[in-house]
Amino acid sequence: MKKWITAGLALAMWSAFSQAEVTLHIGDQKGGMRSQLEAANKLENLPYKIEWSEFPAAAPLAEALNAGAIDVGIIGDAPLLFAVAAGAQAKAIAVSKSDPYGTALLVRPDSPVKSAADLKGKSIATNRGSIGHFVALKALESAGLSAKDVTFRFLPPSEAKLALIQGSVDVWATWEPYTAYAESVDKLRVAVSGRGLWSGNTFLAATDSALADSEKKAAIADYLQRLNAAQVWANQHPDVYGKTLAKIIGFPQDVARLSFERRHSAWQTIDDTTVTQQQQTADFYHTSSLLPKTIQVTPTFSHAFQVSK
């Protein structure tokens, strides 16, 4: 029988604590968890403290997890695999399912690239090990191509976009909210979307040391329920949340709203389907020679947490 930590159980665990206030060190990405929690007023009356660290992409967040610099972080399926391969003692505790359209391959308006088959011989900028990198590789595979048929340049989002606009690369493989901004403001074009290429899974991951600490584990359980409630609220109030998100990430309001609204995200409890999808991603990265060995993903999940419906 699974022993899940629900919102009620987390509160019961809190009532038994008598030690000093717990601090959760949480890693976020641009326009991620914190913006929703603040907009939905879900950070009020916290029985613990939060220290936030914002990262421009998943790779440095994964490094922070690996180093134990953060307790919890939001991270894509592929970057989590790289973190585990690098020795990170962390587990995925919940999954956000979303429409993967905005994890895409972008090109300039006049680019001849209109499909995955047109990528042959082109240069692609992205973060190594990112969701963008994964989608680029899957796009190549879908057209019968491989990484040997293109030139990858591994750059952070701001540099990758500039390289594309200036013409020093042909394609930029990225994700939201960068995709929405690039389409709306920079007038870049989605040549290949992530639909059919990526599962759309993003994880809330926690370090083993944090999970082994009973007080931090209870805090993480409470945080997860607040995060889920904030996502539900954002989906129900796109106009209000769009305004808040725009201020936080410095994007125009219509761009901010587009970046989250078309994802249709929802937090869910880890299930067998999610584990299977992650194993398929791990096997693909190994086949692509980006992971030195096969990873069995089952031990990288914790089934102790349940997302309230």
Rank of each mutant, 00 (worst) to 15 (best):
F301W: 12
L164H: 03
L258K: 15
A221T: 08
A219D: 05
A229Q: 10
M1G: 14
E141G: 09
E159C: 01
G76Y: 05
S18E: 12
I131R: 08
I131E: 13
D222A: 07
I220H: 04
K3M: 13
Q225D: 07
A125N: 03
V307K: 00
A85N: 11
K97P: 00
P238N: 09
P79V: 01
G194Y: 09
I270K: 05
I295G: 07
A90F: 00
V84R: 09
E54M: 11
S35D: 14
M33H: 11
A117C: 03
A182F: 10
L290D: 10
L65I: 09
D239N: 13
S289C: 09
G200S: 08
L164P: 01
D170S: 04
R195F: 04
V72K: 05
V150T: 05
S130K: 01
A39Y: 10
P100D: 03
Q89E: 15
L106S: 00
S146Q: 04
A219W: 02
A85I: 00
T294H: 13
H25A: 14
L291Y: 02
H286N: 09
V150M: 07
W14F: 15
N201A: 12
R34Y: 05
A116D: 04
K161A: 11
T269M: 03
F260C: 04
L162N: 09
K91F: 03
Q278T: 11
S199Y: 10
D149A: 09
L162G: 08
N228V: 07
D271N: 15
L164F: 07
R153N: 12
V169E: 00
W14M: 13
S184I: 11
D77I: 02
D77Y: 00
G250F: 10
R153E: 13
I5C: 06
A125D: 03
G102T: 02
V72N: 02
H25Q: 13
K216M: 05
G76P: 01
F134M: 10
P79K: 00
S15Y: 08
K217G: 00
D254M: 04
E141W: 04
I93M: 04
Q231Y: 13
A206W: 01
A7P: 01
I249E: 07
S288E: 15
K138E: 06
E44S: 14
A182Q: 10
A117D: 10
Q166D: 14
